[in-house]
Design a protein around this nucleic acid. Structure first.
Lengths: 246, 246
DNA sequence: CCAATAGTGTCTATCAGACATTATCTA
DNA sequence: TAGATAATGTCTGATAGACACTATTGG
C-alpha cells in the first residue's frame, strides 16, 4: 500500500490533532476468506464454528476484525486469520470482493472484505483434525447449509470466480499438493467447470505455456504411472488467450 | 445483499442490546470511484478537489463515507456519491477492489472500497462544467499528477482492469454516448489496449455475438458515414472466449 | 494375456490477424 | 475526380475439440 503523497500542512495538523476516529460513525469492518482445497475428488471449503456472538455456534467463513495495532494492511489481516485456523499460510490468496449493507449483520451497518484462497489439503490436515471448531466441508454441502451472515453468498461468488479462473488459467492448481499429476489437475478443472475436458487439449495448452516443471517422478494408481509436476513461480499470472469452453 | 439467516436467540438479544459499535475500534471506511469517459479520443477520469481535511485542496477520486441512515448497501453509497458529482447515474458501475492499510490515510487505519464506473461524456458535461471543484482529466495526465491518499494507485489498477475488459468484452462501450459507431468503439479499445486493431476482426466478433443493435442511422465525418449502434441490454455480461491480442 | 490409467497423433472447426478491395460520403 | 472514412472478401495461422491410437503399469 502507498503512503499519503503530501505532508500535512500546519492547518491539517490542527485538524488531525482534533480528529478522533470514534467521533464519526463508520460501518463495522471484517475480513473473511473462502479457503478452497481439492481432496477426495471434491472441492472443499474451510468452515469455522463461531465462538462468539452474533451467530454464535453457527458455521461460517474464517475471518475477523482488523487488528489495528498489528495488521499493516488487509492482506495481513486475512493471512493472520487463515494462519490462526490452519497453522500455515496458503500459497495463493486474492481479494474477491467487498460486501456491505445495513442488514447483513445484526449489529448494524457492516462491511466484509472477502478473499479467496487455495491450499493443499495435506498442508494443514493435522492442525485442522486436531480441533473441533474448524473443518473442511465439501463445497456442494456447504452451499446448502445455513451459514452465518451472508457467507453463503460469498461462497457462491467465490466458487464462480474460481470457475472462471479454471477457464483461462491454472490457478486452481494451488488447491493441490506441491507435486501433482496432470490428470489430478484436469479432474479439478472438470469439477470446477462442470464438464469433462479433452485430455489432449488440456495438456497441450499447459505444455505450450510452459507453466509446469516435470519433476521426473511418477505416481501410479493401478495403471500407467503419471508424471509429477510442480508449478513454476509465476504460474498464477499466466492467462491463456483462449478460454476452455464452459 | 442477504439478511442474516437465523433469528437471534434470547442470549443473542442480550448481547446485541449491550453492543455498541463505538466500543470496538474499527478502520475508517470510504467508498471511492474511478469514473471513466471517452472524449476527444482520450480516456478521461473524473477528479474532485477535496473540500475538507485531510488533503484539503488536493485533487482526488470522487467518493466519501457511507451514510449509515441513508445507504442500503455499498452500491448505494457509490451511486449517491457519483450522482452528487455528475447529476446522473452512470450506466455501468462495478466493484474494483478494496484497499486498506494503517498508513494510507493520516487519520489512521482506513479502508476504501473502490469502484470503477463508465459514462458518456455528454451525459454529465453541463453539470460538471458548472462547478470548479469537479473536472474531467485525461487519464495519462491524472496518472502523473499528485493525488490525495493512494488514489493514483487506484487509477492504475482501474485502468488495468478496464484494459483487460477491452480484450474480452465490449464493456468499455459504456464510456461512449448512447449511440455510437463501430470506429468510435474500436478507437476506444485501441487506446485501452495500446495498439491498433484490425477493423475486420473487431467488427466480426461483435457481429457474431450480436452485442449491438444497428439503429439504422448514420453519422458522417468527411468520408462514408458510419452506422450508429446502441447496446443490447445484457452486453456487459458477454465475454468472448478468445481474447484480442495484447 | 487383460484391465486400467497415462499420454500421443492427427484431423477438423473456429476465429483472430493481415491486408487488399469495394462502398459512400464531401469538396 | 480525388480524398477520406466505412465496410467487406478472403487467405493464413493458431489453438481447442474430438477421438483413435500407443505406452506403461499391475494382476
Amino acid at each position: 500500500m502507498t503512503k499519503p503523497r503530501v505532508r500535512a500542512t500546519s492547518e491539517e495538523w490542527d485538524y488531525l490533532r482534533e480528529y478522533r476516529v470514534g467521533d464519526y460513525p463508520t460501518p463495522l469492518l471484517t475480513v473473511d476468506a473462502v479457503l478452497f482445497t481439492f481432496h477426495d475428488n471434491q472441492l472443499q471449503v474451510l468452515l469455522v464454528q463461531r465462538a462468539n456472538h452474533p451467530a454464535k455456534g453457527q458455521w461460517g467463513l474464517p475471518g475477523g476484525f482488523v487488528a489495528l495495532e498489528q495488521d499493516a494492511d488487509l492482506d495481513a489481516t486475512v493471512r493472520r486469520n487463515l494462519m490462526a485456523k490452519t497453522g500455515v499460510e496458503p500459497p495463493h490468496i486474492e481479494q474477491l470482493a467487498s460486501y456491505g449493507s445495513a442488514h447483513r449483520d445484526p449489529r448494524g451497518w457492516s462491511v466484509t472484505v472477502c478473499y479467496s484462497a487455495l491450499i493443499a489439503h495435506q498442508a494443514c490436515a493435522q492442525q485442522i483434525d486436531s480441533v473441533s471448531d474448524v473443518r473442511w466441508v465439501p463445497l456442494d454441502e456447504a452451499l446448502v447449509s445455513p451459514l452465518a451472515f451472508d457467507h453463503q453468498q460469498l461462497l457462491v461468488d467465490a466458487r464462480e470466480r474460481l470457475r472462471q479462473k479454471a477457464l483461462y488459467s491454472i490457478v486452481p492448481a494451488y488447491a493441490l499438493p506441491d507435486r501433482f499429476t496432470l490428470p489430478q489437475l484436469q479432474q479439478l478443472h472438470e469439477v470446477l467447470i462442470g464438464k469433462t475436458l479433452q485430455k489432449k487439449s488440456f495438456r497441450r495448452r499447459i505444455e505450450q505455456a510452459e507453466l509446469l516443471i516435470d519433476t521426473g517422478e511418477k505416481r501410479g494408481e493401478g495403471g500407467r504411472p503419471a508424471s509429477l509436476y510442480r508449478m513454476r513461480p509465476n504460474t498464477a499470472d499466466h492467462f491463456f488467450v483462449r478460454n476452455l469452453e464452459s
